[in-house]
């Protein structure tokens, strides 16, 4: 029985060393069992230029320091687990290539959420914001006989906001969210947008009521950090502005 780590180990050895590049990885560490303060650790490793940062972190965790903690799951930009503050910008560690940050990269946990350990943050406040906007289809007009039909145009209306993977890169790039954890944040508004502008959904008004509160869309100061940070390329600020406008004019 060969474990996944062994398979990856052997592939490490087979890789030709001639075309590898050095990469210094600086990580902001935190472990409440060791110290109340955070500290910086630095490793210099050799890696393939096309290797993704999450693999470099694996290399460090598996070969240099097993205590390094970070979240990852699919490692292909779909699960949204490994959002980190990489060189001062929120990005997914699995979508950043070593060659793009070489020779030196600084990695910190995403901001505005409390750090549990190293790069792992408490996602609960983020999920609270997400849950508060009722992120599911609500239709009281009875069960349809077959599917709930929708025209391609109606489907297209909210297509952009269906791409969200809840990685929190947008919400934790938002200066308003850093200062006020009551704010639902960009991700929650994106997911509200996905249902408010869905022709099959009937609770748009209810969601707009929630988002017109003090903790809702009008906290947004259009800094555009969220749009920049989104690893899925969602036009987050645009979605927020559309929800603002819908609340103002109730046109949706």
């Amino acid at each position: 029985m060969v474990t996944a780590a062994e398979v990856l180990d052997s592939s490490d050895q087979e890789r030709p060393t001639t075309d590898t590049i050095p990469l210094t990885v600086r990580v902001r560490r935190f472990n409440p069992e060791v110290s109340e303060d955070s500290w910086w650790d630095e490793w210099t490793v050799r890696c393939d230029p096309l290797e993704r940062l999450v693999e470099v972190l694996h290399q460090i965790k598996w070969h240099h320091d097993g205590t390094l903690s970070f979240r990852r799951s699919c490692a292909h930009g779909i699960c949204g687990s490994d959002a980190m503050l990489i060189n001062g910008r929120n990005q997914l560690a699995c979508k950043v290539l070593a060659q793009d940050v070489s020779p030196r990269v600084t990695i910190e946990p995403i901001r505005g959420l409390s750090v549990l350990k190293d790069l792992i943050v408490d996602m609960e406040p983020f999920m609270d914001g997400y849950r508060s906007i009722l992120p599911y289809l609500i239709s009281d007009s009875g069960e349809p006989e077959k599917e709930r039909r929708q025209s391609p145009e109606d489907r297209h209306r909210y297509d952009d906001t269906t791409k969200c993977i809840l990685c929190a890169a947008c919400t934790t790039s938002c200066p308003v969210f850093w200062g006020d954890d009551g704010y639902v944040g960009p991700a929650a508004i994106v997911n509200a947008h996905r249902f408010i502008f869905d022709s099959r959904d009937e609770a748009g008004r209810e969601r707009m009521k929630i988002l017109s509160e003090k903790t809702g869309v009008f906290r947004c100061r259009t800094t555009f950090n969220c749009t920049d940070a989104c690893p899925r390329g969602i036009e987050v600020t645009k979605a927020i502005q559309e929800v603002k406008r819908a609340i103002l004019f109730e046109r949706f």
């Binding site: 110290s35 650790d41 630095e42 320091d65 259009t222 555009f224 749009t227 920049d228």
Partner: peptide, 23 residues
């Protein structure tokens, strides 16, 4: 291998390199 430097809580790390909208 690891170079360790301990810093106090007041070290907030890098400034967020946001969109010009942030500035």
């Amino acid at each position: 291998m690891a170079i360790r430097s301990r810093k106090s809580k007041s070290d907030y790390g890098s400034i967020y390199r946001g969109h010009e909208g942030q500035w």
